[in-house]
Write a protein that binds this DNA or RNA. Structure first.
Lengths: 170, 170
DNA sequence: GTCTATACCCGGATAGAC
DNA sequence: GTCTATCCGGGTATAGAC
């Protein structure tokens, strides 16, 4: 029973503070000590409410998936892509935490990941394989942009258009 | 002058050992202490040969880019994609280090990144925007696979095919 | 020049007192 | 529920032995 489904009110406060800290100052700032500081308690006290940092991050990630799912209500491929990219640019540290690196699904709120994936499947007309390819393209564009991996001066709008144009034809 | 272009022979040995350690045991194992252990010296001694861990990683990354560039000699889109995916699966920890997270280009061997990008531009017929979209798709598929982000049982060969099919038409 | 020992500050986490 | 004290492991700067 590793699920982070039911959080006590106090745990929710801690998760909220963690997300704020992450978004404001980045992943290095999200330490148990800094978080305790923000909450006015000592780091070890956090462990009375949440089992550890992994669970804390998983709760933040679950919230992020739900929020992303709520954002992606566009119907066309362009709207969907725009919403996805806009979410990532508005919450870069959160997006990175949500999507980069291994993920212990046991710790997530059940269903949160699926809900975030659903719009892409819809946009691909129910074709799971096409939806995964589309997601890979969108995530690739997004994370490479956030990580500054494209050459300086690259026209990312044009690259997005090229890709979406390709997927529109499938 | 932060470039990692010229390495002394001893520094090369250290970088090689770092890469082996990374590939064998993953990123958490790549600590200065563990690396020193492997080399039979103490961690602080490494700093006489390389300025720090960032420079060490950058040297490993530069080697990785050169090796990837040498691997990607296919001409067709399918060959290129297959080579890219095969490299990542053969060297998952190295691929992750090379492509995930922020990258301080100052520390890289000049040109290594460009040489790895060249085959994609060629495959896209010189269209930079199309090449970036293609790279985003390939990286997205690759990193999501390595990170176990696709649902269990997802047919990744089919997703790759779908995507390549889309890009073939542009 | 090369390596060692030592030390500092950061991180996650635990035990036990109040 | 919160505290203090403590452990272990990181990166890394400094000082000094050979």
């Amino acid at each position: 029973m590793a699920s982070g489904a039911e959080l006590t009110p106090r745990a929710r406060e801690i998760v909220t503070a963690a997300r704020e800290l992450l978004e404001e100052e980045g992943p290095e700032a999200l330490s148990m000590r800094r978080l305790g500081e923000r909450l006015g308690i000592r780091a070890p006290s956090i462990y009375k409410h949440l089992p550890g940092k992994d669970a804390l991050e998983a709760a933040v990630i679950s919230d992020g998936f739900d929020e992303l799912a709520a954002t992606l209500d566009g119907t066309t491929l362009e709207e969907l892509a725009h919403g996805y990219r806009a979410f990532a640019r508005a919450h870069p540290h959160l997006y990175r935490l949500m999507t980069a690196g291994r993920l212990d699904r046991e710790l997530l709120v059940p269903g949160a990941e699926d809900r975030a994936a659903f719009p892409a499947i819809q946009a691909a007309g129910g074709d799971r394989d096409a939806a995964r390819a589309l997601w890979a393209f969108a995530h690739g564009m997004t994370i490479l942009e956030l990580d500054g991996r494209f050459p300086p001066g690259a026209d990312l709008d044009a690259a997005w258009s090229r890709g979406l144009q390709a997927f529109a034809g499938v």
